[in-house]
Design a protein around this nucleic acid. Structure first.
Lengths: 343, 343
DNA sequence: TTGTAGGCGTTATCAT
DNA sequence: ATGATAACGCCTACAA
């Protein structure tokens, strides 16, 4: 190769200045070229600039652009539990959409801890984000002062607050749970045991429990709720508790896990204790990893569309960031019941 | 409250200018304050600035800082498979370390696709990253021109390339696999079936297979390798294949999954086919989620330390970014064998 | 069609 | 102890 510039080791960044100089035009012209204002210059100029940009491998400095335009290309997504594949799927949906549009996605994990959630949001203050996607741990707007003070375009994922303030993209939790309740009734169950997290502050779980209980209790079934600490699941204790609730009477019982980590625990319990379903007991849960079906293809599941939730939220967020007219406010993405043989 | 400035709706960002003006000093002084050069100003000035910063809720604009300092506070982490919890753990380790130090972590998923990997790296060019953590899909430095051309501080995670170019933080794959091989020999197995991905371009898997085979074949055991497409796992086919390799002869066989997704598949198969271990067949795999043990607490596993790998890589990356003396080059993080009852 | 110049918010050098 | 001021790389009226 005749021109040996290409072989320079970590060649230090080329700027719009350099390009302008080499092309013998002003930076304004180069800038215009970069922004596609080709009608504001001669064809030759455009060609020359194009060539020189390519030759010099120039790419504009996004930090400078951001400073000038008072925006940033970074969007934050705060999930409640990075170990729950639901959260990862939210991320995947959002990322897929945002990366294409030139944004980077910064993933933050609140670990289901409200204090940490607020702390992290506060840390975001000087991070110059363009917007925020939040799967909130808290459910009271009043507690979210840090977030509202941020004044950033924000979308809520999967859960909502007591007051409307930001658009929410979530599943039809209550409705699908009523469907599930009806299904349980139709299959002749007489008793329902719901396994949920101790601190069921999340609206998604509240709505699920509500939907199921309303329908099922109206039909005269007995309902129990077992609250467990997801991070310190005690299989034996839960097994005992379930036994106490059911064994003594000969009643047809359905066991419901309100999220995937809990369902995995229950399935593990079932495998270990060698429980036969649906003969001994029906099992169903809210879960989204394909993995769970690998382990047990027979499982009846409530499947949401976390990827779609993430995607929609991302679209809406970008629309708001760009100040385009926001056609829709909150959005419901329907979940569905995947019928297996476990219920 | 008497001062009603605090009640303004999305108050637009306060700048160092504003602070200087209110405090009746120059921005230089404010800047000095911000950087802790308190000895370069009077105590009263410092106090006043401190108060005004607090009152006005000022926080410096990181984009401007980055532009000025020609750095950014964003670090990219490209993982091979976001659906493999190993990758998520890498992220967690890195994030935990980096967030504290004031960096944001952008998560990118190459999906095990070399072409996509190069594409994504190329997209990173104008993103002004401070550094990059990469769990590479490719294993040839020559194919990684995009990455080396980036000229960014980079650390490789979990896998290395044919030539040394960047520091690597990885497990002691070959050694731990030899240990595993020895364990299999000691337990009296006569045959080994290794289940691995079709395109085992990743050095981690190569080393695992190598370590096992070397030891085991030296001891006269028979070894088979079943290559599967992780994304299109055909349980029946694999089951048949295993059957063909074993059923006809009465031989004590150990089944080894070289990563977690594959192990989950095998465990699912085992559960469905109701295989008893270790009587009928031994099972062991490389896996890191606690989840797998929830489903089957008896599993013998090779457990790596992905969080530690991520953490170390992050530390080293930051050291390089800051041009501190890098004490160490590549690093090995030891894996260990968790003895269960499945082997 | 093209160029000039001011400014985005900070940092840091050089004065005073 | 403090203040001007020139960058950093880019965008964009406003001129020409």
């Amino acid at each position: 190769m005749t021109d040996n510039d290409n072989n320079k080791i970590p060649t230090q960044p080329v700027t719009i200045q350099d390009i302008a100089q080499i092309a013998d035009v002003s930076i304004a012209t180069v800038s215009r070229y970069l922004h596609g204002h080709l009608n504001r210059m001669s064809a030759e100029t455009a060609d020359r600039i194009a060539r020189i940009i390519k030759e010099n491998n120039y790419v504009p400095n996004k930090v400078a652009q951001n400073l000038k335009q008072k925006t940033s290309s970074t969007i934050g997504i705060m999930v409640a539990n990075i170990d729950d594949s639901f959260s990862i799927e939210l991320y995947k949906g959002a990322e897929e959409c945002l990366f294409k549009l030139g944004y980077e996605l910064v993933l933050i994990n609140s670990k289901g801890d409200a204090k940490r959630e607020n702390q992290l949001i506060n840390d975001m203050r000087n991070r110059q984000l363009a917007g925020l996607l939040v799967q909130p741990v808290q459910n009271k707007l009043a507690d979210f002062k840090v977030l509202s003070d941020l004044g950033l375009p924000t979308m809520l994922l999967d859960r909502h607050l007591d007051e409307h303030h930001w658009p929410v993209i979530e599943s039809n939790n209550e409705a699908i749970s009523r469907d599930l309740g009806q299904m349980i009734i139709d299959k002749g169950y007489e008793e329902v045991i719901i396994v949920t997290e101790t601190v069921a502050a999340t609206t998604s779980h509240q709505q699920r429990a509500k939907g199921i209980c309303e329908i099922v209790e109206a039909a005269g079934l007995i309902t129990h709720i077992i609250e467990v600490d997801e991070n310190h699941f005690d299989g034996e204790a839960v097994h005992t508790q379930i036994g106490q609730l059911t064994n003594h009477r000969q009643i047809k019982t359905a066991l419901i896990a309100l999220n995937e980590p809990l369902l995995i625990q229950l399935v593990g319990l079932k495998i270990r204790k060698n429980v036969k379903y649906p003969q001994q007991m029906g099992i169903v849960g809210y879960a989204d990893t394909p993995m769970i079906n690998i382990l047990d293809p027979d499982l009846t599941l409530v499947r949401q569309q976390p990827i779609e939730i993430g995607r929609r939220a991302a679209q809406m967020l970008v629309a708001e960031i760009r100040n385009e007219e926001v056609a829709e406010d909150s959005v419901i993405i329907n979940a569905e019941i995947i019928a297996g043989n476990s219920l």
